[in-house]
């Protein structure tokens, strides 16, 4: 197992560096950071001054090697746009994004697991159809649209929650719902499928024969196995929440990593984009690894296998 984890960790770092190289090259092709920093009507001499200040007059490959050398020493450079070490920028915002990500995951679990279980236990009834409708709707609705509709409903018309910002827990309710809703369909459907499969299996028949019924049968025997595939999907979804909060954080003006990513891309802030892509890639690989480990922990057959 340790060997497996080490292999996956090495793969994660390789993936992260490969993605960072691609991002570096593409950003340098697409934008000129000096112009982005200086602004639309900046004097060309000011632009040149900025270019020299940040060493942007050097060839792209020299800058990448420079960045890579620093990254290997744990120094990810200084943001052109924010004029701060990028590690500090990330540290300042990671808590906000994690709060949002875990809140969103909570929303997903709170909606998708009961809904999936209800759908499975009431197969082909109106409840099942309703659950399917929820899943299809949540999948079809874009995040930004849902976000603004919720703002209009619950911040403008019924001023229960703030429109934007991240100062209090109330600021996180609407964005957590928006971000969490997008994960409801896959989790709910997996839960439904898994539970239907489990409920038809031999050991459940045996449990029924031993007198287990209702909640006891569901919680003590069926759910544990039905949750196996769900757990791994939830882990991957958490990665999506961390890396995929760009739109939600921008719509709700939440000062987290997602918004930082958007600001950095628009501002051609290459060092910040680099570290964010590096982190997002690592998070995705790490979450997949976590999913495998959790599955192994929950299912002894996998450990033996």
């Amino acid at each position: 197992m340790l060997n497996y984890i080490a292999q996956r960790a090495a793969l994660a770092i390789a993936v992260a560096f490969t993605v960072s190289l691609a991002a570096f090259v593409l950003l340098n092709i697409a934008t000129d950071p000096a112009y982005a920093i200086a602004g639309e009507d900046a004097d060309p001499e000011v632009v040149e001054q900025i270019r020299q200040r940040f060493g942007l007059d050097r060839p792209v490959w020299v800058r990448y090697l420079d960045w890579l050398g620093g990254a290997l020493r744990g120094d990810f450079g200084v943001s052109y746009y924010w004029n701060k070490p990028v590690a500090t920028l990330v540290a300042e915002r990671v808590g906000t994004t994690l709060t949002l990500a875990f809140s969103a995951l909570f929303v997903t679990i709170a909606i998708a697991i009961p809904l999936g279980a209800l759908a499975a236990l009431n197969r082909n009834t109106w409840i099942d159809r309703f659950a399917l409708w929820v899943a299809v709707s949540a999948q079809a609705v874009p995040n930004f649209w849902l976000g603004l509709i919720l703002i209009i409903l619950f911040a403008v018309m019924l001023p229960i929650f703030p429109v934007s910002g991240d100062a209090t827990w109330r600021h996180f309710v609407l964005p957590a719902f928006v971000l969490g809703a997008s994960s409801v369909p896959p989790v709910m459907r997996l839960m439904r499928t898994g539970l239907i499969e489990v409920m038809g299996s031999d050991y459940i028949r045996t449990a029924r024969a031993k007198g287990f019924r209702g909640t006891a049968l569901l919680t003590r025997h069926a759910l544990r196995n039905a949750l196996l595939p769900v757990v791994s999907v939830l882990a991957v979804q958490l990665g999506h929440k961390v890396g995929g909060s760009v739109i939600t954080e921008s719509v709700f003006a939440i000062n987290g990593l997602g918004r930082l990513a958007l600001q950095s891309i628009l501002g051609a802030d290459i060092p910040t984009v680099q570290i964010l892509i590096f982190i997002f890639a690592l998070v995705f690989v790490a979450m997949n690894l976590l999913a495998d480990i959790l599955n192994a922990a929950l299912d002894p057959r996998l450990r033996i296998g």
Partner: peptide
């Protein structure tokens, strides 16, 4: 507030 839609809502 980066998004103009959010500014409108505000």
């Amino acid at each position: 507030i980066p998004d103009i839609g959010t500014q409108q809502a505000e």
